[in-house]
């Protein structure tokens, strides 16, 4: 599997650390909404299909990437920095990588 890091280009999956489901929303730090906290820590959508997930390019630039990847085919449809100010518009289409 190859992930196209917006900084580093297409790199093998071995350079990345999976940080899991990117749909999870962390409540505000002071939130007392325990259901929301529980959902954030334990509950997963785990779709069979496109999955919004977070990967860290731990063997490269160490940026966290928001990746949309199909869990049935492993096909990646978009990769962007999680952190907005690096340019969240930076979307790399599948065709750009090999």
């Amino acid at each position: 599997m190859l992930i196209t890091c917006p900084y580093c280009g297409p790199r093998d999956v071995i350079e990345f650390t999976y940080q899991g489901d990117g749909n999870r929303e962390r409540p505000e730090p002071a939130s007392q909404n325990f259901e929301a906290w529980n959902a954030y820590v334990y509950d997963r959508l785990n779709p069979a299909g496109d999955h919004n997930e977070v990967w860290q390019h731990s063997g490269g630039c160490r940026a966290h990437l928001r990746v949309v990847r199909n869990t049935l085919t492993h096909e990646i449809s978009s990769v962007a920095f999680v952190r907005g100010h690096h340019g969240s518009a930076s979307r790399h289409k599948a065709e750009d990588k090999s």
Binding site: Q56, R62, A63, V82, R83
Partner: peptide, 13 residues
């Protein structure tokens, strides 16, 4: 290290 980076990059950018 990864824990700190995750929070800085993903949770509290």
């Amino acid at each position: 290290m990864q824990h700190l980076e995750y929070f800085l990059d993903v949770i509290w950018p």
